[in-house]
């Protein structure tokens, strides 16, 4: 047990939670904005992979240590936007089932990235042979000097700070701006939105595109922050976890953040448990099992509420 506390109780562990939670959080925010507009983005995983590869490739092509990584990030975001638009086109215009369209994007993402990486590097496993750049970490003055707090909150990758800033930005966007109101209106009652002259399909397009951009940022972090290369299927299901985080967070930015941190905690825990004799697989399964329980509890509560209101 003492080994457990040693692993969990140190500050490096707390810092690791934030790091591990970052890609999940970004993708969960992507799922959130889609869901707020009444759309399902099942393709987060594939979008993240494409973005991760794009980021590494573009940064590597620039051969520039000072802004190469930033160019990579921008390119990754652009690819995310494109894929979001593609998904929107499949779902809204070609009337493809959103689940199957997402599954297709994931299959394509998982395999096309390997194919392209091979064409680029000649290796089907990782892109480590090519020099690429990572996004910088940020050392925050004042905070970095505070013991404990400094270790946790300073020195994180810039994308981690962006992710948490985006929680606030997204909440602000959804709840305080006219466009945010329209997105929520479209998601909650498309008929009502339509009756006041809102372009429902246009708003959904926008939500898919923004969703793609957010997921792409999470993907870019994977290959240009979390590690410094692209690897086959490196997102390892984070896109699906993000969907669960969004569902558990009831499609709100803050809720998605909390559940992402929860996932980050359990993943960091299973990482640091690897050296111990505790069966980390069971710890690894915990967040998923908890999600199932949380979703069931929520569904149960909704059913009861409905029953009560319709009971004569």
């Amino acid at each position: 047990m003492s080994a457990f506390f040693e692993a969990v109780g140190n500050v490096a562990f707390a810092a690791q939670i934030l790091r591990v939670a970052t890609p999940i959080l970004l993708a969960a925010l992507g799922a959130t904005i889609a869901s707020q507009a009444g759309c399902l983005n099942m393709g987060l995983e594939g979008i993240m992979l494409f973005a991760a590869l794009t980021g590494v490739y573009v940064s590597s092509m620039t051969q520039n240590a000072s802004w190469g990584a930033w160019a990579g990030l921008l390119a990754a975001l652009a690819v995310g936007a494109l894929l979001g638009a593609l998904l929107a086109y499949l779902v809204l215009h070609l009337k493809t089932d959103a689940t199957l369209a997402g599954v297709a994007i994931n299959v394509i993402g998982s395999n096309a990235t390997v194919f392209l990486m091979y064409v680029w590097t000649g290796s089907p496993g990782t892109s480590a042979s090519q020099k690429s750049y990572v996004l910088p970490t940020v050392s925050i003055p004042v905070i970095r000097d505070i013991p404990v707090v400094g270790t946790v909150f300073s020195g994180q990758n810039v994308v981690t700070y962006m992710a948490f800033a985006l929680v606030a930005a997204l909440a602000f966007f959804l709840y305080r701006t006219p466009l945010g109101l329209r997105i929520r209106g479209v998601g909650l009652n498309p008929g009502a939105a339509d009756s006041v002259g809102i372009n429902v399909v246009g708003v959904k397009y926008l939500a898919y595109v923004l969703s793609g951009v957010l997921a792409a940022m999470g993907g870019a972090f994977m290959s240009m922050g979390y590690v410094s290369w692209f690897a086959r299927d490196m997102t390892a299901g984070r896109g699906f976890i993000a969907l669960a985080a969004q569902a558990m967070g009831r499609s709100t930015p803050v809720g998605s953040m909390l559940s992402s941190i929860f996932f980050g905690f359990t993943m960091a825990l299973s990482n640091s448990m690897q050296s111990l004799s505790i069966p980390f697989e069971l710890i690894e399964a915990m967040p998923y099992a908890c999600t199932i329980l949380a979703l069931s509890a929520y569904a149960y509560q909704q059913t009861r509420k409905k029953k009560q209101s319709s009971g004569g």
Binding site: L188, A192, V196
Partner: peptide
């Protein structure tokens, strides 16, 4: 049938 968004 009202064209209102209940949760707004």
């Amino acid at each position: 049938h009202f064209m209102l968004v209940d949760r707004l």
